[in-house]
């Protein structure tokens, strides 16, 4: 196996240069039904520089996907209450209407999913789907659209792309479908790519191909990427920055090396400790006891208290804010206040 030990240093870090590409401040998302209100996201703030990869890590129900979908305004308005400020490039997403969002989706911001069939239409050929998106957003001719489609399939490493342009999604294998979906997402050269666990359903040997591809494309095209995953090792492979979410809040934020090598928050530490590896054979894994809280119930204080092994009286008093542990490495834990 070839390791690129310089990979971390390689991407240019525009974070210091100008304004961030993405800015989210105090985002809250609530799902309202007749019986209950689910507070899926509670005051999330982060920013992302152009060309940077942010991994949002969290378990199911932590609000990681909800946060990302809120950026695209994909939640049905009827049952969702969103508050907070969201900006992507020049677009203030939080103030945009559904109509304005439709122009932004697929052009400035694209999204890829865990299940490619959610974004690929089963009754259209792959080539038609890509060309259509290109024609719609770029207002170019169909011939140009098809040329771009071919170019994109080559870019994402689909073998014999001319033949695959005419294929229907179900005729492709899982890995190729995933590549085709990425091609559709890249068709209008987005500045921000949102990835919702795009490799989770893939086999190990295919997952690594897609990850390597995504990282290469990100660097070549200079896209910013928000990558949602529950898998710490996937984050280790692709992220520049990592945000760990628990119960609808970011509990730790920092560079991928800082967070994964020197975790500060007890939850991140617990996640790392409970990730199994071979050398633990015969030992009891240090699992985090209990399970994540019910998001329908409002919690006083830090929501990790019931599962935390270092609880102080201060933890029950108020929700801890993100504070600097080190330069650029923040954790929301009363132990650091």
């Amino acid at each position: 196996m070839v390791y690129d030990t310089h990979a971390l240093a390689a991407p240019p870090s525009p974070a210091s240069t100008g304004t961030p590409l993405v800015e989210v401040r105090d985002l809250s998302v609530e799902f309202v039904s007749r019986e209950s209100t689910t507070r899926a996201v509670n005051g999330v703030s982060f920013s992302l520089a152009p060309g940077e990869v942010l991994c949002i890590i969290g378990e199911s129900g932590s609000g990681k996907s909800v946060t990302m979908r809120a950026l695209m305004k994909l939640h049905p308005a009827k049952h969702t209450r969103i508050s907070g400020y969201m900006r992507v490039a020049d677009h203030e997403v939080s103030a945009h209407s559904e109509r304005e969002m439709r122009d932004i989706r697929g052009s400035h911001i694209s999204m890829i999913f865990q299940e490619p069939m959610t974004s690929l239409d089963p009754v259209y050929r792959i080539g038609d789907q890509i060309a259509e998106t290109v024609v719609h957003h770029k207002k170019c001719s169909r011939a140009d659209g098809y040329a771009r489609a071919l170019e994109l399939l080559k870019l994402v490493g689909v073998p014999s792309p001319e033949r695959r342009l005419k294929a229907y999604p179900h005729e492709l294998s899982g890995g190729l479908r995933q590549r085709a979906m990425i091609a559709v997402a890249l068709s209008c050269s987005p500045t921000l790519l949102l990835a919702d666990e795009p490799t989770t359903a893939l086999d190990a040997t295919v997952q690594i191909q897609v990850l390597v591809l995504l990282r290469r494309l990100q660097q070549e095209l200079g896209m910013a990427v928000i990558f949602v995953t529950h898998d710490l090792s996937v984050a280790a492979q692709i992220a520049d920055k990592v945000a760990v979410m628990y119960a609808g809040r970011i509990v730790e934020y920092g560079s991928v090396a800082d967070v994964l090598q020197h975790p500060a928050h007890p939850y991140t530490q617990g996640m790392l400790a409970s990730t199994v590896s071979g050398h633990m054979r015969g030992q009891i894994i240090e699992a985090i006891p209990g399970s994540p809280p019910d998001m329908r119930v409002r919690i006083e204080g830090c929501s990790f208290v019931p599962r935390c092994k270092s609880v102080k009286p201060a933890c029950r008093r108020g929700t801890p804010a993100l504070v600097d542990v080190l330069q650029g490495h923040q954790a929301a834990c009363a132990n650091f206040v």
Binding site: A7, Q207, I208, D231, S233, V234, A257, S277
Partner: peptide
């Protein structure tokens, strides 16, 4: 996948 971000795979096996 390695948990160490310094050990990134650049070539799929």
């Amino acid at each position: 996948l390695s948990m160490n971000p310094a050990e990134r795979v650049t070539e799929p096996p």
